[in-house]
């Protein structure tokens, strides 16, 4: 009872702070100076129509690199906490009971290729319209999750995924260092020609960085999901 009282007091006081925030908030009528300079500079200097991807991969590219490192640490941490003995041999007769029903299997067989195509489209169109590396990587991981749920015999090759994500991460840093050597600074995207505004191969290194980010995030989330499966006893 006392615990509920304390909880109510904590939530109530935080609610008072939030109420003062919400009441004192008024919509802004024009962009703040930093945002206005970003909106003006991204089409001009970087040649990317999507302002948010330009910010994420060039002006705030260092935050993206840090976030990639955080994802890697999380994958390692989950692998450490959930590590069990590797299953020796596959008992194929035991899997009969937890196979998914036919409706779900048929639906998954139709949906998984569509999900993969859609994820590739989101990643590669990151600089032209809404999308980018993170979003596409999450969609790939949802496709892998669907396959894991529906086909219990599906074993994604964990070594291949780990090697793929490590290479993608290393290439990301190498592209950044190449920006340091040949263009303005770390993770500058002008190492490749800017190309025509709005074309598919434009905006310098941003499509390459989007693709690497998508591969890395997708592999990472797939590895995390694979660790959560129950091991066969």
């Amino acid at each position: 009872m006392i615990q509920r009282l304390f909880a109510a007091a904590a939530v109530g006081s935080l609610g008072l702070v939030f109420a003062s925030l919400a009441v004192g908030y008024s919509e802004q009528y024009s962009l703040r100076p930093l945002a206005e300079s970003y909106v003006r500079l991204v089409p001009l200097e970087l040649g990317a129509p999507n302002v948010i991807t330009g910010i994420l991969l060039t002006y705030r590219g260092f935050d993206t690199l840090g976030e990639v490192a955080v994802l890697f640490m999380v994958a390692a941490g989950v692998g450490l906490v959930l590590s069990r003995q590797p299953a020796r041999g596959r008992a194929s007769t035991k899997m009969r009971s937890d196979e998914a029903s036919e409706i779900v299997r048929t639906g998954a067989e139709i949906l998984v290729p569509l999900i993969c195509i859609f994820a590739a489209y989101i990643i590669m169109n990151g600089h032209l319209s809404a999308g980018g590396g993170f979003q596409g990587g999450a969609v790939i991981a949802s496709g892998v999750l669907l396959t894991l749920l529906v086909f219990p015999q599906y074993q994604p090759n964990l070594e291949f995924l780990s090697i793929a994500e490590s290479i993608a991460g290393a290439l990301f840093v190498l592209v950044g260092v190449a920006g340091l050597i040949t263009a303005g600074g770390f993770l500058d995207n002008r190492i490749f020609p800017l190309g025509q505004f709005g074309a598919f191969f434009s905006a310098g290194a941003i499509p390459l960085l989007s693709a690497l980010l998508g591969i890395k995030v997708g592999c990472e989330l797939s590895v995390i999901l694979e660790r959560f499966r129950p091991q066969k006893r």
Binding site: Q28, L31, L34, V39, V51, I52, I55, R60, D63, F134
Partner: peptide, 12 residues
Amino acid sequence: VVDPIPSALVVT
């Protein structure tokens, strides 16, 4: 346009 910076931070 709306402010792009909070959207970029929230994506991460």
